[in-house]
Design a protein around this nucleic acid. Structure first.
Length: 786
RNA sequence: GCCGGAGUGGCGAAAUUGGUAGACGCACGGGACUUAAAAUCCCGAGGGCCACAAGGCCCGUGCCGGUUCGAGUCCGGCCUCCGGCACCA
């Protein structure tokens, strides 16, 4: 009579034993070559605390176990990225203070992770909302400020007049506040930035040294940085002392520039309006464009809107007066916020010129000759040879033409070659309570003054109220806001902006090495031993922002002499998201708390056990792909574990006590074993646990059949069964530990060595030869290898 | 709109390098065991056509086209869905 598989008892027992005997403890002082950790950052949901899908954690844990079994050093710490909007919104909605809400979520999720059998080294646990952690955000900020890498400038924000607060883009729906429904206004605020653009070139170059990152992510990052070579050209403006600077990638088309277009936000607009006699029309236009929400303005390839300022600039090449326009499609953040309009050769400029009756002048002559501008229906390609371009005439299109133009500009002092980037500086200010306070003090006489290191951390006050209608609660805390100027000692006002949570998550991986070090941010010696992170796992939604910021901060730390490396993550794996139908929107969306479509693992664990949940989660499909959550296959996963349990029981009953080496080497079952070890090892290496599981299912069936038929020696069956347990262990750790011990092994299975295989025995004896005629299968032959 | 990715049976999927499309599961159908049911085990199955049968033929990896002896895989053009977003001059 077979024994029943009782997952709850087995799992509770092993979770207790692992904790008591401290399996996961790894001394960071010991050099190692692998370092596993988990990305805890499902932006933009903002919540770093829920167990939404669990696959991230199970994937990470399975890899960690595989590495341990392979005898390689691995560290599996857990960090909680616990600042963010959801905690603050929860406070507003329910009255629970953000800290309480956050710590409660951490405690609950920790329980869930332990219940899933994840082996974290809890001695290295971090919470990023802990002052012991965020004080180092502040310390880093001060070092960056000293070096000019942190600075202030104005930037527009979404302002909700009803809530008297700044809204995240996510909170603006159709130009209205998602909570109050008020129309959202654009306001200019002076805010803090990190000068990530100074690192654009280094961030771009570094991608070439990351062979173990997917091309997919590297391409996205390259496009995001958006390097483009071109030139800045100075256009003098009638009646003004200062010229307008324009960035263009095609300085060679300068002779075809028939107008200038400025972003309505451009600093010079106010000056132009003053002398123009149409200040009112200009003011209206600027206002209108600025109140188009950013999304509207940037979306839908929208309608080109423009207004002539009445002012004129001089084209430095032709010496002609050309009109200065304002245009909604020129963005203040890119380049210089001003462009030269070359309608003959740029589609957007062409549409704009047609709409407003501006001249179109081709400056390239193609094989077909010149084209009548009036007959054009779209912009011409840059093709052929320059014409109508003075001394540049006859230069062929391409880098040469650009060089000729730049040389000409530089000789006359009206422009220069320039590399432009699409990347913009990182706005880190948030007008919110639940984040790292920015360590600055506004003094009426000394200006903006840094908080001295000795006064860190600047603590978030706890005695604040959340009602969601008075703006940032920090501003209401007298005890927080009222400060002494560190320089003159006079009464001053503390900065109330807090930091973007991406600052926290940009360096936490380093902190796992010295989580309780009160004296310094990072420990360079341990960094030298452990870094870079051997394997980083995170959702594909972080392909750009988080990973770029983390690479940026790592470079800053290197420049500060704190770390020796520029690239923190040697190998990157981006798992796809688990999606699920959102009942509220009727759409299939990524599972996230802010979208309210998460699934808790508790119920499934209670019904089938953690091993089944892990097995099923990994069996869904390839982890790099997104997949839609469904529980249809859970029962099948459970059945498989039952079969394994049953097999082990029967082998234990009849298997004898064969010793290693007793088993004959070359039998069908031993060949299957070697083949299975090979398949599972290869699949696990490339994160394809789902096909590894398929191989394990075939392996289990093979052993069971051999046992049933009595075709193999007890020693071979027992050896194969133990190999099955080892291969299955990263996926279903509890059941496999249980049988490993029952088969008389001492110590933990997770500490055993990963089975090796003999390539000769892993190769099938026979091969199928397929006969194809014209690509169609016409026959098959079974033949012996060789 | 821009950048990146995906689309294969009723469903999740496999095919790592251009060479047997659908492994392994779910759901389903049939059978064994049982007084019965559950559980378990065994068998079946992409679609269509021909055949009493063994078996044979055709079609089939989102759509249209191309390269190749041969395409799920490579190339060009579309459609739909997902992620990111800042009209990139």
């Amino acid at each position: 009579m077979a024994e029943r598989y009782a997952p709850c008892e087995i799992e509770a027992k092993w979770q207790r034993l692992w904790a008591e005997e401290r399996v996961a403890e790894v001394d960071t002082a010991v050099p190692g070559n692998e370092f596993y950790m988990l990305n805890m950052y499902p932006y933009p949901s903002g919540s770093r605390l829920h167990v939404g899908h669990g696959r991230n954690y199970i994937l990470g844990d399975a890899l960690y176990r595989r590495e341990r079994m392979a005898g390689r050093r691995a560290l599996n710490p857990m960090g909680w990225d616990a600042f963010g909007l959801p905690a603050e919104n929860a406070a507003i909605q329910s009255g629970v203070p953000p800290r309480e809400y956050t710590l409660g979520n951490i405690a609950r999720m920790k329980e869930q992770l332990i219940a899933l059998g994840c082996l974290y080294d809890w001695s290295k646990e971090l919470a990023l909302c802990d002052p012991a952690y965020y004080r180092w955000n502040q310390w880093l900020f001060l070092r960056m400020w000293e070096r000019g890498l942190a600075y202030r400038k104005t930037a527009p924000v979404n302002w909700c007049p009803g809530c008297r607060t700044v809204l995240a883009n996510e909170q603006v729906v159709d130009g209205r506040c998602e909570r109050s429904g008020d129309a959202v206004a654009i306001r200019d605020l002076t805010q803090w930035f990190f000068r990530v653009t100074d690192y654009a070139e280094r961030l771009l170059e570094g991608l070439d040294r990351l062979p173990q990152w997917s091309e997919r992510v590297k391409t996205m990052q390259r496009n995001w940085i958006g390097r483009s070579e071109g030139a800045e050209i100075l256009f003098s403006v009638e009646g003004l002392a200062e010229p307008v600077t324009v960035f263009t990638t095609r300085p060679d088309t300068l002779y075809g520039a028939t107008f200038l277009a400025l972003a309505p936000e451009h600093a010079i607009v106010a000056l132009l309006a003053k002398g123009s006699g149409r200040a009112e029309a200009i003011g209206d236009f600027v206002n209108r464009v600025r109140h188009e929400s950013r999304l509207e303005r940037e979306a839908e390839g929208g309608e080109k809107e423009g207004l002539a300022t009445g002012a004129f600039a001089v084209n430095p090449a032709t010496a002609e007066k050309i009109p200065i326009w304002l245009a909604n499609f020129v963005l203040p953040e890119y380049g210089t916020g001003a462009i030269m309009g070359v309608p003959a050769h740029d589609q957007r400029d062409f549409e704009f010129a047609r709409k407003y009756g501006l001249p179109i002048r081709p400056v390239f002559r193609t094989a077909k000759g010149e084209i009548d501008p009036g007959a054009m229906t779209q912009a011409l390609p840059h093709d052929g040879f320059l014409c109508h371009s003075g001394s540049w005439d006859g230069t062929p299109n391409g880098p040469q033409a650009v060089r000729v133009a730049i040389q000409w500009l530089e000789q006359r002092g009206v422009g220069r070659g320039k590399v432009g980037y699409r990347l913009r500086d990182w706005l880190i200010s948030r007008q919110r309570y639940w984040g790292t306070p920015i360590p600055a003090i506004h003094c009426p006489s000394c200006g903006v003054v840094p908080v001295p290191d000795a006064d860190l951390p600047v603590l978030l006050p706890e005695d604040v109220e959340f009602r969601g209608v008075e703006g940032n609660p920090l501003e209401k805390s007298e005890a927080f806001v009222n400060a002494r100027c560190p320089r003159c000692g006079g009464a001053a006002r503390r900065e109330t902006d807090t930091m973007d949570t991406f600052v926290d998550s940009s360096w936490y991986y380093l902190r796992f090495l010295n989580p309780h070090d009160a004296a310094r941010m990072v420990d360079p010696e341990r960094v030298r031993r452990w870094m870079p992170v051997g394997q980083y796992i995170g959702g594909i939604e972080h392909a750009i922002l988080h990973l770029l910021y983390a690479r940026f901060i790592c470079r800053v730390l290197k420049d500060l002499g704190l770390v020796h490396l520029e690239e923190p993550f040697e190998r990157l794996f981006n798992q796809g998201m688990i999606t699920r139908l959102n009942a509220a929107t009727g759409k299939i969306e990524k599972m996230s708390k802010s979208r309210g479509n998460t699934v808790s693992p508790d119920e499934l664990i209670a019904r089938y056990g953690a091993d089944t949940v892990r097995l099923y989660t990994l069996f869904i499909g390839p982890p790099e792909k997104e997949s839609e959550w469904s529980e249809d296959g859970v029962a099948g996963a459970y059945r498989f574990l039952n079969r394994v349990h049953d097999l082990c029981f029967r082998v234990g009953e009849r298997g004898g006590d064969a010793r290693p080496g007793d088993a004959p080497r070359d039998t069908p079952l031993s060949r299957l074993m070697h083949r299975s070890v090979e398949r599972v090892s290869d699949d696990a290496r490339r994160f394809h646990f789902h096909t590894a599981i398929a191989a394990l299912m075939e392996f289990q069936r093979g052993i069971a059949d051999a046992l049933e038929e009595g075709s193999e020696s007890p020693a071979t069956v027992r050896e194969a069964t133990k190999a099955l347990l080892q291969l299955l262990h990263p996926i279903a750790p509890h059941l496999t530990e249980e049988w490993w011990r029952r088969f008389g092994e001492k110590g933990f299975l997770v500490e055993s060595s990963w089975p090796a295989y003999d390539p000769d025995l892993a190769t099938p004896l026979g091969v199928t030869l397929v006969v194809q005629v014209n690509g169609k299968v016409r026959g098959k032959l079974e033949v012996a290898r060789g």
